[in-house]
């Protein structure tokens, strides 16, 4: 697999670079590979480059589904114990 994590853009520099942040960790990243990066965008960072913007609506929907699945799992385990 290719290791890549979502981070939030907190600064866009004129030279194609920018700052991205996750959990209080900021990294200088390169934003030249994505269309019109803006502060507040979530991007997928691989080897210091933003390779894709994250679709926030899709992410929220998926996260809600995961929460439901985790909830169902916990409930079924508690029932078993």
């Amino acid at each position: 697999m290719c290791l890549a994590i979502p981070m939030r853009v907190v600064a866009v520099h004129a030279d194609g670079g920018g700052l991205a942040e996750v959990d209080g960790v900021k990294r200088l990243v390169t934003l030249t590979l994505v269309e019109t990066p803006q502060v507040g965008d979530y991007v997928i960072i691989h080897a210091g480059f933003a390779i894709k913007k994250l679709d926030e609506d899709e992410a929220r929907e998926r996260l809600a589904l995961f929460r439901q699945m985790a909830q169902a799992w916990t409930t079924s385990r508690e029932g078993a114990e």
């Binding site: 290791l3 994590i5 996750v22 959990d23 209080g24 960790v25 990294r27 960072i45």
Partner: peptide, 12 residues
């Protein structure tokens, strides 16, 4: 700490 976890995840 979230920051340690974030750095660890970023770097694999």
């Amino acid at each position: 700490t979230p920051a340690a976890a974030a750095v660890a995840e970023m770097l694999g």
